[in-house]
């Protein structure tokens, strides 16, 4: 099977998965106790007629499965309905926030990859030396620190004491402005630290294992320079397990953003989600949970495709 066919086959498999996610999202929100009408009307006493009118307006009068089908069909076209809280289209609200989370998430992911892979390689190549021990200590700290605590400490030290970063987001400067990117560094580091530590240790152990394999000796016996042996032969095989976990880290980064965005008052979808959960803004909650679910599925798809690309044994 060629790589293209593998990708196609694996891609088709995500369809039932996506349907499952929509079903779960919809069901979950509807299983929460409390009538959305109460939140729409702010618990006002209503006569039966007005209540029926409002229900009809939000489609709440229809059977649940019809509501589900309507929701999925509309969602597929980017229409998630109107927010109960702000009465504005959900899509607009999310699109205003999503780029910020994407910026923070991609910076966090980039920080994790850029620091974890090289330091993991170095730790593996110089295993059981001081370098390795130092990286081990950092990894342990990185995994153990809770996000919200690390965030607060970073704000305290770098923003409050050292004045190197602004304390509040410069949202008026635009997403890709220098100020915004600098501001995003701290939350990105906060989210990325755990992933960095995990990926670094994984890279190290995976590489140590590969370095001991016979094909490494074969490559050396060919007279290849040590650099080629490590970069070409060992690295590719070591990355196989790292790539899978790295892609799954995308999911952790997204979920981590919920907490970190609150700590940093960051205008992303994580904070939006927490705000609206408090207000029972079902259309927004549904849409956000769906988007996060889809992101995780796509991250896994990406992991599988990269896996197949790196390891030919998978795709045949």
């Amino acid at each position: 099977m060629s790589l293209q066919r593998f990708v196609l086959k694996r891609g088709l498999l995500t369809i039932p998965l996506l349907l499952g996610v929509t079903l779960f999202t919809f069901g979950m929100v509807h299983a929460i106790p409390g009538d959305p009408i109460d939140f729409i009307t702010l618990f006002a006493e209503l006569d039966a007629e007005t209540e029926a009118e409002i229900r009809a307006q939000y489609g709440l009068d229809k059977p649940v499965y019809i509501q589900y089908i309507d929701w999925v069909l509309n969602a597929a076209q980017g229409d998630f309905g109107k927010s109960i809280v702000t009465r504005r289209p959900v899509a607009t609200e999310i699109l205003n926030r999503l780029p910020y989370t994407l910026l923070m998430g991609s910076m966090a992911f980039a920080i994790a990859i850029i620091t974890a892979i090289p330091s993991g390689i170095v730790a593996a190549y110089y295993r059981n030396t001081t370098v390795d021990q130092i990286s081990r200590v950092f990894a342990l700290i990185g995994v153990a620190l809770p996000n919200f605590w690390l965030g607060l400490i970073l704000i305290l030290v770098f923003a409050s004491w050292l004045n190197l970063f602004p304390v509040l987001p410069p949202t008026d400067r635009g997403l890709l402005s220098q100020d915004m990117i600098i501001y995003t560094l701290l939350p990105a580091i906060t989210i990325g630290t755990g992933s960095t530590a995990l990926l670094m240790r994984l890279m190290r152990s995976s590489m140590v294992e590969e370095l001991d394999k016979d094909y490494v000796r074969t490559a050396r016996a060919k007279g290849l320079p040590e650099r080629t042996v490590v970069q070409k032969h060992v690295l590719r095989n070591s990355l196989i397990s790292v790539v899978t976990v790295a892609a799954i880290q995308i999911a952790f980064i997204i979920s981590g953003s919920v907490v970190v965005e609150i700590v940093f008052s960051y205008p992303g979808i994580g904070r939006l989600l927490v705000d609206r959960v408090g207000n029972r803004d079902f259309p927004v909650i549904q849409a956000l949970v769906l988007i996060i679910g889809v992101a995780v599925i796509l991250a896994n798809l990406l992991a599988d495709v990269l896996y197949a690309y790196l390891d030919p044994r998978i795709r045949y």
Partner: peptide, 10 residues
């Protein structure tokens, strides 16, 4: 062992 002496990824 030729199987392990060859790199599976190339």
């Amino acid at each position: 062992d030729a199987e392990t002496a060859l790199n599976p990824a190339y």
